[in-house]
Simulated assay, not measured.
Amino acid sequence: MTTTTTAAAGSTGDTGPYALSHLDALESEAVHIFREVAGEFERPVILFSGGKDSIVMLHLALKAFAPAPVPFSLLHVDTGHNFPEVIDHRDRVAAEHRLRLHVAAVQDYIDRGELRERPDGLRNPLQTVPLLDGIGKGRFDAVFGGGRRDEEKARAKERVFSLRDEFGGWDPRRQRPELWQLYNGRHSPGEHVRVFPLSNWTELDVWQYIGREKIELPAIYYAHEREVFSRNGMWLSPGGWGGPKDGESLQTRTVRYRTVGDMSCTGAVDSDAATIEAVIAEIAASRLTERGATRADDKMSEAAMEDRKREGYF
């Protein structure tokens, strides 16, 4: 009698009829996380910007609870300098799935004098106060984010369940072990937990999953002709946020965006990848992370993201 042993799902060298593929294992883990949060917390919310990671995260949430509706609402901190194509996609997806969308607008805080414009024009660093206010007003005790550990040094330190104090601050010394996919959502009054279902995904995983599931994205993720100008080694799009300045000339180039955020700090990359297959091939050959290559706000200092996380940012 011959006995066949099947490797654990998702492990290297999986074989046999019951082994999950790499993407199936990641999907299964994320679905488990969504269901775990639904069982442990009273008022979870999904951060949803209309970018690729939040779109994949919502797709996974829809799978986790189908055929029932997603039992969470959506929250977006809008800098006012977001790409119009992405905002249109955000609103269309929320309406399609009949999800309540909470929008915390940075511009409202500036108009009330609670925040001041930065001299460099960047608004991403201004998101923390509206984010924490949005969490507090909604009484959300768990907040899903699309952060991945491969994006940036500080995010590589995150647990799947990331405990935040009553001020939204992150302290790596207070994070809990997560052995055997056991997640501890215990928190004191006033605290909350940030949850990262895509923690173990890479940018390549995300794109391969988008291709497999045929998930629609804003068109700016694919190669297209666009007017851009060069600043600090990045191709930026012109707009009311403050670009281009004197001496910065517009050019029409074929570009695409690997990540989307505030237009003042999110750069495009030269690319002819106009299909999912071409994007996957391009990413597989890249040696730079998406944030390292195209996000000016992460280049302000070696500890820029970690400093912001300690203040309450994602």
Rank of each mutant, 00 (worst) to 15 (best):
D91Y: 07
L74E: 01
L47M: 15
P67W: 04
A25L: 10
T15K: 10
I276W: 08
A273K: 03
D205M: 03
A285C: 06
T128S: 12
A281L: 08
R118E: 09
G247A: 12
M57L: 11
L198T: 02
F314Y: 14
G242P: 05
A25I: 07
V269C: 08
P197C: 05
R291C: 11
E248P: 07
G138Q: 07
P67K: 04
T4E: 09
W235S: 13
G190P: 06
R253C: 05
D120P: 04
A105Q: 10
L58A: 02
P189S: 14
E27M: 08
M300G: 15
G51C: 02
Q251R: 15
K137Q: 15
L58W: 03
G168I: 01
Y109D: 04
E216W: 01
T79E: 01
D272F: 13
W241H: 12
P119M: 12
R258Q: 05
R186N: 13
V37A: 10
L126F: 06
I210K: 00
F83S: 04
A303L: 15
R287P: 08
T259V: 13
D14C: 13
Q175R: 10
N82R: 11
V143A: 08
S28Y: 12
I210A: 05
A303M: 14
T254P: 03
L58V: 11
I46D: 00
H81W: 12
R174S: 14
E85K: 07
R139Y: 13
G39V: 09
R116Q: 15
V279K: 02
